[in-house]
């Protein structure tokens, strides 16, 4: 009997030793553990999370804080809001789900004291478990209590392995030096926005039956967004937290091409769910898929991300909506420019 007890007691010790060993076996800037989990994330890699979460620590108070996936950090251009005298920070990161957003907000809300929090709700993240974003955040941000809580909330052995790896790094101080990589065609803008400039402009056919659309832009098949209760519960938590901190929240959905939208079989149900949450907390929900502000043909970089012109037009429409709702004041110079 004592043998089996010894066996079980030895597991955590050997586990920690192995984590330490695996951490130090690196290949193409990834630890052995990362290689085995289809984890596409490398430190200082795609999405500029490393740079963004370095910057936020000394950024100061903001008027608006943006949260969300690539649909946030590739969409909300801080410079356009600065034109209105607004200081903003874009805390979006790759594949960030509401679960990830909540813990990020919890960690940083007191650093930036936002008056407004805009949560971008892209349908594509509402049916994900948040693991991919967790990998990104655990790789590119320092060890923190919120990361541990995030791992427990995701409740996957992969998340536990990653957080233990992070903790071992934190305790031993053995961590590979991280430097933000540069990627051609994208540039980090102070405040968290990442500007994508197309190396080769793509033309987005309006007609979803168009062969180019099928091959280059369309999702493979009709899909149903499986709204995870877990993610919905974190939208609630975000709204409660924002309210506790005396800030106001706005839920926003960035537009996607009509064809993309048409291929989501239960979009109305998704929209209805988000609307009901927004009503519950008395916050606006602005689904820009209903606003008809972009051209499916001209304003997209790929199947669902905006191109630079799309970003400009979308933000202009959002600002206009915020002004209309007296959420922000119109800036005289801009009004003149718009005229």
């Amino acid at each position: 009997m004592s043998r089996i007890i010894k066996f079980f007691l030895s597991i955590p010790v050997i586990y920690l030793v192995l984590v330490f060993v695996f951490l130090n076996i690196r290949f193409q800037n990834k630890s052995l553990m990362d290689l085995s989990t289809r984890n596409p994330v490398v430190a200082g890699g795609f999405g500029h999370s490393f740079q963004r979460f370095q910057e936020i620590q000394h950024y100061g108070d903001v008027d608006i804080l943006f949260l969300g996936s690539s649909h946030a950090y590739r969409t909300f251009d801080n410079r356009l809001y600065a034109d209105y005298g607004l200081k903003t920070f874009n805390m979006g990161s790759p594949n960030q789900t509401p679960l990830n957003s909540y813990y990020l907000l919890k960690k940083h809300i007191d650093d930036v004291n936002p008056k407004w929090v805009i949560l971008e709700l892209y349908t594509g993240v509402l049916d994900r478990d948040g693991l991919e974003s967790f990998y990104d955040l655990a790789t590119n941000t320092p060890f923190s209590q919120e990361l541990v809580e995030m791992a427990f909330a995701i409740n996957s052995p992969h998340a536990y392995n990653k957080i233990v790896e992070k903790w071992v790094q934190h305790v031993t101080g053995i961590a590979p030096p991280v430097k933000q990589k540069d990627f051609s065609g994208e540039a980090y803008v102070a405040g968290g926005y990442v500007e994508y400039s197309q190396s080769k402009p793509k033309i987005m056919p309006v007609d979803m039956q168009h062969p180019n659309y099928q091959t280059e832009f369309a999702p493979e098949e009709m899909r149903e967004v499986e709204l995870l209760d877990l993610q919905i519960s974190y939208v609630h938590k975000i709204l409660k937290l924002v309210s506790q901190k005396n800030a106001r929240a706005i839920l926003v959905t960035q537009p996607v091409p009509q064809a993309y939208l048409a291929q989501i079989s239960n979009y109305e149900e998704v929209e209805k769910t988000i609307n009901s949450i927004a009503s519950l907390y008395d916050v606006p929900y602005l689904d820009f898929n209903k606003y008809n502000v972009l051209d499916s043909y001209l304003h997209f970089e790929d199947s669902d991300h905006l191109n630079p012109e799309g970003v400009r037009r979308f933000n202009r429409a959002l600002i206009k909506e915020l002004v209309k709702r007296n959420i922000i004041s119109p800036a005289k110079s801009i009004v003149k420019k718009e005229d």
Partner: peptide, 9 residues
């Protein structure tokens, strides 16, 4: 430990 580190969960 193969399951812990290399399992697909």
């Amino acid at each position: 430990f193969s399951i812990i580190f290399f399992g697909v969960f």
